[in-house]
Amino acid sequence: MASSSSSVGLSFLTRNTIKVPLSIPKSFSPFPKLTFPTISCFYSATPRLDYNSFKKINPIHYCSNLPTASTNNTHYEFSDGSSEVELRLELGQGEITPKDIHVDANESSLAVRIQQSGIVRALMDTSTLYEKIKPAETIWYIDEDQLVISLKKQNSELKWPDIVESWESLSAGITQLLRGTSIYLVGESTEINQRIARELAVGLGYTPLSTEELLEAYAKQSMESWVNEEGSDAVAEAENAILESLSSYARAVIATLGGEKGAAGRANQWRHLFAGFTVWLSLSEATDEETAKEEAKRNMQDSGQGYSNAEVVVKLGGWDPNYSKAVAQAVLSALKRLILADKDLPGKKSLYIRLGCRGDWPEIKPPGWDPSTSPDTSSMSS
């Protein structure tokens, strides 16, 4: 008794480069007291989900603002079984028969409406279920004053924290997928990276770290004065050493330096960034979804730009302090889809770290492999 429609699935792409960092004294501690400025804004997000070979270019998934889940009845019960999830919605007052109920299930969305006396009432209308279902196998029935909907999961191994994809469900559910892997935020703005790192860390229960804060604590001077005295190249090299120190850390969200002074903006300084999942927070002038998609595609194909190595791209159309959590939510949504497309990714990241972050991501070489003996040494530096 369910209607269904089809939707387009997701697929992805990646790139890889190498950089050998300089050394920081062993006495250096990466945990000074951190502070984060209040910034951010979110109008739209375009995650780029990539892995395997950069020769394989696949569709870009686009998120517009926050996923919506509207209902006139805020009372519902949700339970997750091994292969399906069950949703119970309160029907409300009045006699309601099956012919009054309309359930429209899609792979990623669910609309439930009741039509009585020519008036249509929405019980639930969400454009973003927590994960994909098999719409043709949706079953529903009336149980006294409740509508019971059974949705068959496409991925029976994934635990659903809730029926909809939201900040709360993502931050609660994605830890089972990350398996302790750290997250690195890169992009043109240090300030944006720091703000979103803090939001993500609070939601995930991870440690927030900022390479700017760590570098300033180590050098005992401001970033501005350091750049003025020694230049952006020296700062980028120092940040690369910080990234080497942090590459073995688990359960951290690391905000990197933005702009020319940052190591992440340089294509040859990504060796240790590959130890975690990398997210490019990219400022955009796009005013609509299609323009943002095309811009993201162009960015991805620019191999000379370090940020193009990122596994996820989130396009930001502006900033407002009230919407930083929405950007963080888009990041988690994109990371969830990335990992679900290749569930072995966290394990590969762990192996990459154990072998010494040698720069062979994503094609991890056997133990003993030396990047200096590789035929492709053009992207390496010591």
Rank of each mutant, 00 (worst) to 15 (best):
D162H: 09
G304Y: 05
S70A: 13
G92N: 09
G368C: 14
W226I: 04
I183L: 12
Y43V: 03
E260Q: 11
K297E: 08
H102K: 15
K55W: 07
E294I: 13
V20W: 15
P30I: 08
G173P: 02
N228I: 00
A334K: 01
C63V: 13
S53H: 07
D125E: 07
E144Q: 14
Y218C: 02
K261S: 10
Y43S: 01
F277E: 01
N299C: 06
V331C: 09
T126L: 13
T190M: 03
S70M: 05
N16L: 02
V312S: 02
I149G: 00
P346Q: 04
R113C: 05
Q93I: 12
M1N: 07
L66R: 10
Q154N: 10
S27R: 03
L340Q: 09
P37H: 11
A310H: 02
E107K: 09
S225D: 08
L158I: 12
I254K: 00
G94C: 15
G118C: 08
S7E: 13
A252K: 00
D162M: 04
W280C: 12
K349D: 01
T126W: 04
S169W: 03
T128W: 07
Q269S: 05
H102R: 10
L91N: 12
R195M: 03
P321R: 12
S378K: 14
P32L: 14
W226H: 06
K348I: 06
Y130L: 11
P366G: 15
E230M: 06
D342Y: 15
Y218F: 15
N155L: 06
S245H: 05
E239Q: 05
E188S: 07
L243R: 02
P208A: 10
K297H: 03
S303E: 11
Y51K: 05
S210D: 00
S247F: 05
P208W: 00
R48D: 02
K315A: 03
K19S: 09
S248C: 11
R15S: 05
G368N: 12
E84S: 14
R113I: 03
F54T: 01
K55S: 10
M380P: 04
T68P: 01
R88S: 10
S333W: 07
N73H: 14
D342I: 04
L243D: 00
D376A: 10
A267W: 00
Q93D: 13
E311W: 00
